[in-house]
């Protein structure tokens, strides 16, 4: 799951080191356009629907928080 999510992130911004970055939002590694794209791609890849209110800084801080969010919906 983690690799798939990293692949999605890389597809959005290939130039960013998402593994070693600890705060995607504070460090401007994901903007509001990217977050909408990321959420859409995650939903398509894992065939899940993530509730809109999950789109917050806490859930998209780094790869681990995103994995935890997806796990919540993906069992």
């Amino acid at each position: 799951m983690k690799d798939k999510i990293l692949e999605i992130l890389k597809d959005i911004r290939p130039d960013v080191d998402y593994i070693n970055s600890s705060n995607y939002i504070e460090d401007n590694l994901l903007d509001s356009f990217d977050l909408a794209a990321l959420l859409g791609d995650i939903e398509d890849t894992f065939n899940i629907k993530i509730a809109g209110e999950e789109l917050n800084k806490e859930n998209f801080t780094n790869i681990d928080t995103i994995v935890n969010l997806v796990k919540k919906y993906n069992g």
Partner: peptide
């Protein structure tokens, strides 16, 4: 942010927080 150019007399939108507000 992100290379954008804006003056203080122009519209500012905090996209993520507007998502939060709207979707919640």
């Amino acid at each position: 942010e992100d290379g954008n150019l804006r003056s203080e007399e122009q519209l500012f939108i905090d996209g993520l927080n507007i998502y939060n507000f709207s979707l919640e």
